[in-house]
Write a protein that binds this DNA or RNA. Sequence first.
DNA 1: GTCATCTTTTGTCCTAGACAAAATTAGAAG
DNA 2: CTTCTAATTTTGTCTAGGACAAAAGATGAC
Lengths: 286, 286
Amino acid sequence: MTIQQLSKEIGISIDTLRIWERRYGFPIPTRNARGHRSYSGDQVDELRIVKKLQSLGHRPGKIFALSSAERRELLTVAAEQELPPNQALQQLTKEFSPSQIDEELREQLQKLGLVSFIHQYALPLLQALDQGWTEGSISIAREHLVSDRLEQLLREQLVTEQPTKSQKQLLFLTLSGERHKLGLLLAAALFHAEGIGCILLNQELPISEVPQLASELQVDGVALSFSFHYSTRQAKNDLARLRNQLDPQFKLIAGGQAVQGGIQMQNLIICTTLKQIPRICRKLSA
Amino acid sequence: MTIQQLSKEIGISIDTLRIWERRYGFPIPTRNARGHRSYSGDQVDELRIVKKLQSLGHRPGKIFALSSAERRELLTVAAEQELPPNQALQQLTKEFSPSQIDEELREQLQKLGLVSFIHQYALPLLQALDQGWTEGSISIAREHLVSDRLEQLLREQLVTEQPTKSQKQLLFLTLSGERHKLGLLLAAALFHAEGIGCILLNQELPISEVPQLASELQVDGVALSFSFHYSTRQAKNDLARLRNQLDPQFKLIAGGQAVQGGIQMQNLIICTTLKQIPRICRKLSA
DNA sequence: GTCATCTTTTGTCCTAGACAAAATTAGAAG
DNA sequence: CTTCTAATTTTGTCTAGGACAAAAGATGAC
């Protein structure tokens, strides 16, 4: 695999891959006839683990000081601190076919209602998927499959609504480079449940387009999500740039793993947990 | 704007931006205190035009030999060769609110049926959006908005189906880096209309996950789309790698602008127009 | 006109060095 | 022993300029 393919596949920049090789001696790829790097499948797997550990808060220096086995152990230890998923979720994540997944999700949504479904079902499900990947019992492909069906289901709940003029309206979107849209969707669903009008845009937008869209749609604010794909540094940069371009009348709300690390900015609301959403809504309506 | 932000915003790699500057003398950004490149808003707009001309088949050498005004003219000339959009579409693309767009789309779908809706309504609509952008009468933001609603509508049509065991099944997906999902969706809708079971995955998958997913879902083939975001070179690379990793029993179908330029490979079906789909379906069922 | 060969264009990769922002450690003061 | 500030290390992204293969275009033979 070439350096570009690797970079795309795991979401680490080419520059970073090269400097890791220079500094830490890993990954050291073979070279093809041209002198270009060529990575093995094992190296890809190892880097996935490195990425995961990094997103758990470990720094590259520490991670690369460990052996491959030690890295795996560290990951397992972290996973064991979480609750084990219940059996119903096991089935869903491991055995069900696409249509069975759909059926199960819709049934649970019906039974629990949107808010409880998110807190009591969707979040544990996502956690189970994550844990399953760590253990090696769930393939990335399956993870994608299940979260895709959940995404579609939630999206349907949000798009069919008709906003009333009186309520506050928020525009939910992700910036270019953010592939993870599920977190934003969960947040939007909860805002919706609190009576906020939610306009959801399932596209990765360039920053410069956001101000125009916000004023054209006459929303009261813009909500963004930055997953672990985004480095905290970049999230901060992008938010600063956006806040700068966006008229101060619009609220700006940011959530997701990349903004947990204490970003502070004027006129910016950071949403660290989904549980904060009711409080933010009260603030918005005031 | 930094080089990274610019690269993300318009989808041209950092390496390419730097070498364009070296070779053609455009864009030449100012430098900040660190000596890092800093691009102006005008340069961003100009590069969007360059990108558009490039996707129309012009080569960088030619494009950069022109003046800014000449570039704009070339773009306008190209746009005028297309049919002017009718008034109904004008309204949709320029005036309607999100919920009005939804309403109109759903009404047209109801009236025309899926296949006619795609050929007689969706495709002209997308063309009108594109043309509007060229003229400057439609913002990129609005373009995103309309295509997002269309995407959601089509997705709903496809996800609600229950596949029967007997029919052929295809897995529709995009690879990491491919943000444009609408083309794939249109294709999937037409395959669906021909009686093919369509499993749609709205995620950008790494190549290495595709073989596993295909065999887990027991589909008969995998269909991919490569929009103008993808260079032909990369599409070719990725397809070769995927064909190599994927068991020969699975068909591989590729479509989109990036594969129009005559990619040929064993065991690969290239779909240059949506009109070819019925023929491909007959081939599949045989 | 068609095919094969030569030339130019183009994008991606290479090395190796620099530096600021973030994170950590050390030290001082309460 | 805690809290705050200052020095130090770590880390990712940028820089320059060179190299080369694949794609596209031009040339010439038949």
